Amino acid sequence: MPLTALEIQKAKPGEKVVKLSDGGGLQLWITPDGAKRWRLAYRFGGIQKTLAIGVYPAIGLKEAREARDSARRLLADGQDPGLVKKTAKTARAISSATTFAAIAEELLEKKRREDKAPRTLEKVEWLLGLAKPAIGSRPIAEIAATEVLDVLRKVEARGRLETARRMRSTIGEVFRFAIATGRCENDPTGALKGALVTPVARHRAAITEPEEFGGLLRAIATYDGMPETTTALKLLALTFVRPGELRSAEWCEFDLDTAVWAIPAEKMKMRRPHRVPLAPQAVDILKGLRAITGHGSLLFPSVRSPSRCMSENTINAALRRLGFGQEEMTGHGFRAAASSMLNECGRWNPDAIEAQLAHIEGNAVRRAYQRAEFWEERVRMMAWWADQCEEMRGSGVAER
C-alpha cells in the first residue's frame, strides 16, 4: 500500500533498519539513528540490486516516486539505473576537474611548488580571482574567446588597462597549462591580441638629477617620523635594492664585518641570490639600527607585530609626508636614480651596474662572467656612490 506524507513523518526508528514500502520497489529505510533514506530495490541481469535515491526530507515523497519512475524507464530500456547514476557522477567529477577555476588552482599549486615569489603568486591569484566569477565554473574546453574578452572588457571599462592586459596573459597561461595536460586544445586569448586598449607605459616616478636628489637626501635627514622609517629611506638611497627586499631584510643576512648583505633567492624578484656590498656609511647606519631592532630577526618589523615586516606603504607615505608627490618619487625610484647617475658618470661598466641592480642577464655564460668579474668593481662603485650621496646631500652637486 502506498505511503502517505503523514505516515512518513510519524515513522519512528527501531533497533534495526525499518523498511517501509511505497510500491514498485521504492522503500523508505529508517535507520536506528533516526535517518530516513529512500532506496529502490530492483533486479537487473538476474541480480538483485539497490539504488540510493536520497535522504528524507531533502527528497520528499513526490521526488522519490519520480526518481523511481525514471529508474523503471531505464530498466525497460535495458539499462542499469545504478550504473547510469555512477556514470553520471563520474562525468560530473571529470567536468568539475576541467573547469577554468579547477585548472587555475592546479596552475597556482604548480607555481607554489616551483617556489615562486610570494608577491608574484599573490598577483597571479588576484588576477585569476577577477576572472573566476564569470568563467570559473565553465569547462575550459568550452570557453570561447568572446567570453574571455567580455571579462577583460569589464576590467578595461573601469580604467584598469594594465590590469586587463595582465589578465589576458594570466588567463592564457591557464589555457596553455590545460593544453599541456590534455584538457583543451586551444588558447583563445591568442585571438585577443590587439583587442584591448594598449596602456600608456608609465615609468615609476624618480628624481634623477643630482641637485634635486640632494634635496631629497636633505629632506630625509630631517624626517621626524619613526627612526626605522628614516633608516629605511637612507638605506634605499645607499643600496638601491627593491623596497620589498629591504622591508623583509633579516639580521642574519648581514655580515657587517665584511660589509656584505646576502639576500636569499626566495626574497628576490628573479629568485636568484644577490649580494650587496655595503659602503662604510651603510654599515654605520645598520649598526645604529641594530641598537633599535637588533633584538628581533627583522630589520624593519611592523609596529603591529614583530614577526611581520614594515608595511609596503610606509616608505611611500614617508616620501609624501616629506612633500614628494607620487609623480615625483617612490621607494622604487631610488633604483632609477642610482642607475641613471651611475651610468651618466661614465666611471662604471654598465654590466656592473646591471649586476648590482640584480637585473637578470639572459645568457647563462654572461651571468657567470658578471658574478666572477664584477664583484670588486661593484664594491668600489657602492663606496663611490655613498660618497656621492654625502656630497649631494651637502651641496646638491655631485660629480658627473
Rank of each mutant, 00 (worst) to 15 (best):
Ile171Asp: 12
Glu156Tyr: 07
Leu130Ile: 11
Glu162Phe: 02
Thr120Asn: 14
Arg158Gly: 11
Asp115Tyr: 10
Val148Met: 11
Glu162Asn: 07
Trp126Pro: 09
Lys116Leu: 13
Glu147Thr: 07
Leu149Gly: 10
Arg168Ile: 02
Pro118Val: 09
Ile171Arg: 01
Leu152Thr: 03
Thr163His: 00
Ala157Gly: 07
Glu162Leu: 02
Pro133Met: 05
Glu142Arg: 05
Glu162Thr: 03
Val124Pro: 01
Leu152Cys: 01
Arg166Gln: 10
Val151Met: 08
Leu127His: 10
Lys116Arg: 15
Ala131Met: 02
Asp150Pro: 00
Pro133Val: 14
Leu127Pro: 12
Arg165Pro: 04
Leu149Trp: 09
Pro118Asn: 13
Thr170Asp: 08
Ile171Met: 04
Ile171Pro: 11
Lys123Arg: 13
Glu122Tyr: 08
Val155Met: 08
Lys132His: 15
Ala117Phe: 11
Val155Gly: 08
Ile135His: 07
Glu156Pro: 04
Ala131Phe: 00
Leu128Arg: 09
Val151Trp: 06
Thr146Phe: 04
Leu121Ser: 14
Ala145Gln: 10
Gly136Pro: 10
Ala117Met: 14
Leu127Gly: 06
Met167Leu: 00
Leu152Asn: 02
Glu122Pro: 06
Glu162Gly: 03
Leu130Lys: 02
Leu121Val: 14
Ile140Gln: 04
Met167Arg: 00
Glu114Met: 11
Glu122Ala: 15
Ser169Arg: 06
Arg168Met: 12
Lys116Ile: 12
Glu147Ser: 03
Thr146Gly: 10
Ala164Thr: 01
Thr163Leu: 00
Met167Glu: 01
Thr170Gln: 09
Ala141Phe: 13
Leu121Ala: 14
Lys116Pro: 10
Thr163Glu: 04
Ala134Thr: 06
Asp150Gly: 07
Val151Leu: 01
Glu142Gln: 08
Leu128Glu: 10
Arg165Phe: 04
Ala141Gly: 09
Gly129Cys: 02
Lys123Gln: 15
Arg166Leu: 06
Glu125Gly: 05
Arg153Cys: 06
Glu156Lys: 14
Ala145Tyr: 10
Leu161His: 06
Thr146Arg: 09
Leu128Pro: 12
Ser137Leu: 12
Met167Thr: 00
Pro139Leu: 02
Asp150Ile: 01
Thr120Arg: 11
Asp115Ala: 08
Leu161Ile: 03
Pro133Glu: 13
Leu130Tyr: 01
Leu121Trp: 08
Glu114Tyr: 09
Asp150Leu: 05
Ala144Trp: 12
Arg138Trp: 03
Arg138His: 13
Leu161Ala: 12
Lys154His: 14
Leu127Asn: 12
Val151Gln: 08
Arg138Asp: 06
Ile143Pro: 05
Ala145Arg: 13
Ser169Gly: 12
Glu142Asn: 12
Ser137Tyr: 02
Ser169Pro: 10
Ile143Ala: 08
Ala134Asn: 07
Leu128Lys: 06
Asp150Asn: 08
Ser169Leu: 05
Ile171Gly: 08
Glu156Gln: 11
Glu125Asn: 07
Arg119Ser: 15
Val124Arg: 01
Leu149Ile: 07
Thr170Ser: 03
Ile171Val: 07
Glu156Gly: 07
Pro133Asp: 11
Glu162Met: 03
Gly136Lys: 00
Glu114Leu: 15
